[in-house]
């Protein structure tokens, strides 16, 4: 196996299989909605949803952009914080014991409670949204990093120590690279929560965004537009997820490729 062929084997299967599954899902939806007695206000067929969404594309795009912005800014802040906190927790076992329960605790507060509270405390603006996105996506990334540091090979760390390396060198040359697979796992989990978190935050009170759009459509019983908004949100999540996978492939080919070989 050479380096060149290690990366993207059978790209056809990778793309075709999931597309096929989506096609089957959409097809089943279409057939069911058309042939059952369910009315369009309950479950419009996919084609209706697509049509309505396309007709309303200007408003849809205008509301997607703020959501995307909240997700991206919140996520970047989340990653930065995750790195800082994880390094702190890694170098200090005491900090780990003290802070970890707090982090876990922060994850048990339901979004339904948190989102309106943030609106009460911070208003209708941008800030409470990115705060919620950060809070929700931060945890899996921190856990991924901490597990990743711990997965460092003992002998590698010891070897560097015998070569005279200090804590910082060991961290940079062994522990941090060791943590990258765990980091990307956390990143992938985090990104799937990010869009939902932003929409939740918007639902609780905002001027625009996909959450506001869906809420408005729901208020006027436009189920087709509600579903169009949901489809956009799902697509957004899929695209962001695919991006993190792509970044992972570029950033840690040694991991991705070695796993493909061993499969």
């Amino acid at each position: 196996m050479t380096i060149a062929e290690g990366g993207f084997r059978q790209p056809l299967n990778r793309v075709v299989a999931p597309l096929l599954m989506i096609g089957v899902f959409v097809g089943a939806w279409e057939i069911y909605a058309r042939n059952s007695s369910i009315g369009d206000t309950v479950l419009p067929p996919f084609s209706r949803v697509a049509q309505a969404g396309w007709a309303d594309r200007q408003s849809l795009v205008a509301n997607t952009l703020p959501t995307l912005r909240e997700v991206l800014v919140g996520f970047v802040i989340s990653v930065i914080f995750a790195f800082l906190i994880s390094i702190l927790l890694d170098v200090s076992p005491r900090a780990n014991r003290a802070v970890m329960p707090l982090l876990i605790g922060s994850q048990t507060i339901p979004l339904v409670v948190l989102a309106p509270l943030f609106v009460i405390w911070f208003g209708f603006g941008f800030f409470p949204k990115i705060l919620l996105v950060t809070l929700v996506t931060f945890f899996p990334i921190v856990v991924g990093l901490i597990d990743g540091y711990a997965s460092s090979e003992r002998d590698s760390v010891t070897l560097l120590r015998t070569m005279g390396a200090g804590t910082l060198t060991v961290f940079g040359l062994v522990r941090l690279p060791s943590a990258m697979p765990g980091f990307f796992t956390g990143l992938r989990i985090g990104i799937t929560y990010a869009v939902v978190a932003a929409i939740f935050a918007e639902y609780a009170g905002a001027v625009n965004g996909l959450g506001v759009y869906i809420q408005g459509a729901s208020g006027s019983f436009r189920t087709d537009l509600v579903l169009a908004g949901v489809l956009v949100a799902a697509t957004l999540t899929l695209v962001l997820y695919a991006l993190t996978v792509l970044v992972q492939r570029l950033a840690i080919p040694w991991y991705t490729q070695s796993r493909e070989v061993s499969q």
Binding site: E153, D155, S156, T158, L159, T162, L173, V174, P177, M180, I252, W254, Y255, S258
Partner: peptide, 12 residues
């Protein structure tokens, strides 16, 4: 210079 029992190569 120590060579550990497991080769301890850095996979990346």
């Amino acid at each position: 210079a120590w060579m550990p029992q497991n080769d301890a190569l850095l996979p990346w």
